[in-house]
Simulated assay, not measured.
Amino acid sequence: MEYKGSDVYDHEKFFTDYLKRRHREESPNNIIERPVIVELMGDVAGEYILDLGCGDAGFGRELFQQGCSSYEGVEGSTNMVEKAREMLNETNGKVHHSSMETWDFPEARYDKVVSRLALHYLAELGPVFEQVNKCLKADGKFIFSVQHPILTSSIESASHSSQRQNWIVDEYFHVGKRVETWIEKEVVKYHRTVEDYFKLLKSEGFSIDEIRECSPQKENFKSEQEYIRRMGIPLFLVFSCSKSAD
Results as ranks from 00 to 15, higher is better:
residue 221 F to W: 11
residue 199 K to M: 14
residue 201 L to C: 04
residue 139 D to L: 02
residue 124 E to T: 12
residue 107 E to V: 13
residue 91 T to G: 03
residue 28 P to W: 04
residue 218 K to F: 10
residue 236 F to T: 06
residue 39 E to K: 15
residue 127 P to C: 10
residue 2 E to L: 03
residue 83 K to R: 15
residue 204 E to M: 04
residue 172 Y to A: 04
residue 146 V to I: 15
residue 106 P to A: 01
residue 53 G to F: 09
residue 118 A to E: 04
residue 198 F to Q: 09
residue 83 K to S: 13
residue 153 S to A: 15
residue 121 Y to I: 06
residue 196 D to M: 14
residue 36 V to H: 07
residue 6 S to D: 11
residue 135 C to S: 13
residue 81 V to K: 03
residue 43 D to Y: 04
residue 7 D to V: 07
residue 16 T to V: 13
residue 221 F to N: 04
residue 11 H to M: 04
residue 22 R to H: 08
residue 245 A to N: 11
residue 121 Y to R: 09
residue 198 F to P: 00
residue 76 G to C: 04
residue 212 R to W: 05
residue 110 Y to A: 07
residue 116 R to P: 00
residue 84 A to Q: 08
residue 82 E to C: 03
residue 100 M to F: 10
residue 157 S to Q: 09
residue 55 G to A: 07
residue 8 V to P: 06
residue 37 I to A: 08
residue 226 E to Y: 01
residue 93 G to W: 11
residue 166 N to H: 14
residue 216 P to A: 10
residue 32 I to G: 08
residue 125 L to V: 12
residue 191 H to Q: 10
residue 127 P to D: 11
residue 158 A to K: 05
residue 122 L to W: 05
residue 6 S to I: 01
residue 114 V to R: 07
residue 234 P to C: 10
residue 93 G to N: 04
residue 44 V to P: 04
residue 221 F to C: 02
residue 45 A to Y: 11
residue 225 Q to A: 14
residue 149 P to Y: 08
residue 137 K to Y: 06
residue 189 K to Q: 15
residue 149 P to Q: 12
residue 98 S to K: 11
residue 183 I to D: 00
residue 146 V to C: 12
residue 226 E to W: 00
residue 172 Y to S: 09
residue 142 F to C: 08
residue 61 R to H: 06
residue 177 K to P: 08
residue 197 Y to W: 14
residue 158 A to C: 00
residue 215 S to W: 07
residue 237 L to N: 10
residue 116 R to L: 02
residue 118 A to K: 06
residue 168 I to R: 15
residue 63 L to M: 14
residue 142 F to E: 05
residue 72 E to L: 08
residue 165 Q to L: 14
residue 205 G to Y: 06
residue 208 I to T: 10
